[in-house]
């Protein structure tokens, strides 16, 4: 029995440490781009979420279409290094808006995001890997990614949010196309596109560029 328990403990330790591989961001100042290593989370092919990319150790790490393998703090610093200016205009109370009409859109420098993986046909735009379902047959809005900032909140609460799919007070970069309150009012929902993204667990790179 003791041997069995010891073996089980050993297996648990091995499985736990197998995920401990920490990678690093690649910042290319000339191209104005950041490459973020991540993994696909197949759970959000069939379940709605507001998170496109979150640090796997952060509070929202398991609640995101892709799990970033690097910290969101590094991401903020990398964007600042590229010279991007954060919006920092969404506060926690703005998140209580009951509809998008009452809500506020994030500000900050414009960004664009793409995903690549082994076998992908070039850089796939974030718009193609995320499915937006707009209520009452409304028009799908292209993702308008901004450097929202929110550094103090990210540092204090560690939600791990890199890219939120609506305007948010927690994400480093969030989507200005959908103001706060849109999700509370169920005006839109998002999930990963299983027809475009590779299977669950696949290593991908998320490329974020500063749009000049």
């Amino acid at each position: 029995m003791k041997k069995l328990l010891l073996f089980a403990a050993l297996v648990f330790v091995l499985v736990s440490t197998a995920y401990a591989e920490e990678l690093s961001l690649i910042v290319n100042k000339e191209k104005g781009e950041i490459i973020i290593p991540a993994e696909v989370n197949g759970k959000y092919f069939v379940t709605p979420t507001k998170h496109a990319l979150s640090y796997y150790k952060g509070g929202n790490g398991p609640k995101s279409i892709m799990r970033a393998l690097v910290s969101e703090i590094d991401y903020y610093n990398a964007l600042a290094e590229l010279g991007a200016i954060p919006g920092d205009n969404i506060k926690a109370e703005d998140m209580k808006a009951k509809s998008s009409a009452e809500g506020k859109s994030t500000e900050g420098d414009k960004l664009s995001a793409f995903v690549t993986w082994e076998g992908s046909n070039g850089e796939i735009p974030l718009d193609d890997v995320v499915v937006s379902e707009v209520a009452n047959g409304g028009k799908v809005r292209p993702i308008d990614l901004r450097f929202s900032g929110n550094f103090e909140f990210a540092k204090r609460s560690r939600p791990g949010c890199f890219i939120c799919l609506d305007s948010c007070s927690a994400g480093i970069s969030t989507n200005a196309a959908w103001p706060t309150g849109a999700l509370n009012n169920r005006e839109v929902s998002f999930h990963g596109n299983s027809k475009v993204l590779p299977p669950d667990g696949t290593r991908v790179n998320v490329i974020v560029r500063l749009v000049k």
Binding site: V15, Y19, G42, K43, P62, D200, G201
Partner: peptide, 11 residues
């Protein structure tokens, strides 16, 4: 998978 906090185990 979320309960055992091992998100790299295939479904």
């Amino acid at each position: 998978r979320d309960g055992i906090m091992q998100n790299n185990i295939p479904f």
